[in-house]
Computed example of a mutant assay.
Amino acid sequence: MNRFIYQININFKRIILRNKRFFLFDMMLPIVFYLLYSKVLVTGIPQTDLKTWQMNYLISMIIYSCLLGSIITVANTLLEDKTSHFDILSQLTPLPRWQYYLSRILIFLLLNLISSIGICLVGIFVNNLTLSITTWSLIILITIIGTVPLIFIGILISLANNPATVNMLNNLLVFPLAMISGLWWPITMMPKWLQSIGKLTPTFELSNIDQSILHGKIIDNQYVLGIILWLVAIGTTTLLITKYQKYKELDIE
């Protein structure tokens, strides 16, 4: 257990404390979007509806920040571990391989927690949004749990083992996913066929769960089941590909 905690401590320092890209990209980009669409580009929104819009868009930017951190940061970090041979160093420790990934998943969840709290503070201090501590905490907690399937997507992308391929997959997945799931603008603005696709995404399902908590509504079990199915599907695929790559390496040797 002490070795596992030591590994978590090392990963915390190198992935979060020394990772300037996290603060500049995963946090600042969603904050800029939030300030732009909740404070500047609000012409035409009635004053009575402005607070609701600011709160709803805050939820979207929290999830968008976690989307960036869970896929792009995860994929790039794990790829850097491989290119710098840090993963080989980890393999030489007495810890089993699953703890290598578990220690990183915990750090990535912490990274998402930090970004979520940061964006919430912007909403509180800039737009004077007021919610009970229980509601704020529940929204953040559910969001962090709901990002686990996204983290597995990031792990899956990192298995491409090629920087160009990983960057291409990140761009092909993250930004279209943010658009069609309604994080950048309401999903109702898109064509019906695109709405049908967007409603199947984990980010749309997570957004609806958070919106239900925000407005005191009953959470639709359909969205909870959807996230669970995403987790099982992506987790199983990642496990199978990891085992296949390991078998292939052993076969080559």
Rank of each mutant, 00 (worst) to 15 (best):
I107Q: 00
F108C: 03
L111F: 13
N112L: 07
L113K: 05
I114G: 02
I114S: 05
S115W: 11
G118T: 06
G118M: 04
I119F: 02
I119E: 09
L121V: 01
N127M: 07
T130S: 15
T130V: 15
S132C: 00
I133Q: 14
T135P: 08
W136F: 04
W136L: 06
S137G: 09
I140Y: 02
L141P: 03
L141A: 05
I144A: 10
I144D: 06
I144S: 09
I145K: 07
I145L: 08
V148Q: 03
V148T: 00
P149A: 08
P149Q: 00
L150M: 02
I151Q: 01
G154C: 06
G154D: 03
S158E: 07
N161D: 15
N161T: 13
N162R: 10
T165K: 15
T165S: 12
V166C: 09
V166W: 01
V166D: 01
N167V: 10
M168K: 14
L172D: 06
L173E: 08
F175S: 09
F175E: 10
P176A: 02
A178K: 01
M179E: 14
I180D: 06
L183D: 09
L183Q: 00
W184H: 13
W184T: 13
W185A: 15
W185Q: 09
I187T: 10
T188H: 12
T188Q: 14
M189H: 15
M190Y: 14
P191L: 13
W193N: 13
L194D: 11
L194H: 05
Q195A: 05
S196T: 13
I197W: 05
K199Y: 00
L200Q: 03
N208E: 13
D210Y: 09
I213E: 08
L214V: 12
H215R: 13
I219E: 04
I219L: 02
N221F: 14
Y223S: 07
V224D: 07
G226S: 05
I227M: 00
I228Y: 05
L229V: 11
L231Q: 08
L231S: 09
A233W: 13
